[in-house]
Design a binder for these strands. Structure first.
Lengths: 154, 154
DNA sequence: ACTTATGTAACACGCGCTGTAACAAATAGA
DNA sequence: TCTATTTGTTACAGCGCGTGTTACATAAGT
C-alpha cells in the first residue's frame, strides 16, 4: 500500500496535538513541514479525511484543520478506510489466468475470498488503536527519550 | 504487495495437482501457460520456493517441479514468507519526518510496531489455509461450475 | 551429441506514486 | 473593497519498481 495511510495518521496526530495543546487548527504547511513533503500532498489526503467526516477544514486567515470528532472515537481503521482506494493489499494476477485449466479457472475467486478474510483480520487490529492512543503513546515515547538524553548527560 | 505471492500459490496448486492426479512433475512452461506469463517469471518464484524447502526441482528430460512436503503441511503463510522480500505491506514515510517535531520524531517507531502487529494478524489468517485445502476447494468450485453449465443446458 | 528443462543475468517497457507548479475559491481583517 | 492567508483542484514531470522478454549457461536423460 502507498504511504497515504501513514501520512494520514501522522496528520491526525498533528491536528489532535495542535488542537489539544494549543487550541488552534493546524495548517497544511505546518503539517507538510513535519511530514517533510509538499503542502499539496497533505491537502490531497485531507480531502479524503474530510469526506469521511474525520476532520473539518476552513480556508482563509486563521483557517486550517480541526478534528471533526473526539480523538477517542477515531480508530486507525477509520483512517485506513478513509484513504483506501480499493487497491487490494495483496495483488492478484497481473494477467488473467488460463480459463481452460482447472486451477487457473477458479483460483482467482478463491484467493479473493482468502485475501479478503486476511485483510479483515488486519483491519480488526487497526480498529483497536485510536488517535487518542496515538497521542498518548507519542507523549510517552517523547518523555522516555528525554529521560534517556538526561542519563547520557549525567 | 506484488503478485509474486498470488503466482506462488497458483504454482503450488498446479504442482500439487500434477503430482497427485497424474504422478508427474510440472514444468515451468506448463505453469506459465496456466498463469499466462513467461516461464522465466515462474522460475524466479520457483527459486524462492526451493530455498524455503517447499518444492524440489530437477533439470533435464522428465524434469520439473515436485512438492518437497505433503500438501497438508504447506500453509499459505509458508508461501507468503517464502516469497516475501521484506517489503512492508503498509508503506511508511516516503521521506524521513522532521525530528524536531514531537509527532514526527516518534511516529515512525510507533507505526512500525502497530503495522507489525496488524500484519501478524493477517499472516495468522493465511496460516489456516493449506495447499491441500486449496486443491480441495478448487475441485469443489470446478464441480459446481460443471453443475451450473448442466443446468443452463437443460 | 542432442534434446529437454532449469538457473540466471541483463534490459526494455509501462504504470503508479510522489513531488511541484499554477491557478481558482473562500475567508478574515484593514 | 482590497489584500493577505489558506484551502481546493488540476496538470504534469520524474522516477522507482514490477513485469515481461531475450540470451545464454548448466544439468540431466536418451
Amino acid at each position: 500500500m502507498n504511504s497515504r495511510f501513514t501520512l494520514a495518521v501522522h496528520m491526525l496526530g498533528l491536528i489532535s496535538y495542535h488542537q489539544t495543546q494549543r487550541g488552534e487548527p493546524a495548517t497544511s504547511e505546518q503539517m507538510a513541514d513535519s511530514i517533510n513533503t509538499n503542502p499539496v500532498v497533505v491537502r490531497r489526503i485531507l480531502g479524503d479525511l474530510r469526506e469521511a467526516n474525520l476532520v473539518e477544514t476552513r480556508r482563509g486567515v486563521g483557517g486550517g484543520v480541526r478534528l471533526a470528532r473526539k480523538p477517542e472515537t477515531i480508530t486507525l481503521r477509520h483512517v485506513y478506510e478513509a484513504v483506501d482506494q480499493d487497491c487490494e493489499l495483496i495483488a492478484l494476477h497481473p494477467n488473467p489466468p488460463s480459463q481452460s485449466c482447472m486451477v487457473g479457472a477458479h483460483i482467482e475467486g478463491f484467493l479473493r475470498e482468502v485475501f479478503g478474510e486476511a485483510e479483515e483480520a488486519l483491519k480488526q487490529r487497526l480498529a483497536a488503536v485510536t488517535v487518542a492512543d496515538l497521542n498518548l503513546e507519542l507523549a510517552r515515547r517523547s518523555a522516555r527519550c528525554m529521560q534517556d538524553v538526561g542519563q547520557q548527560m549525567a
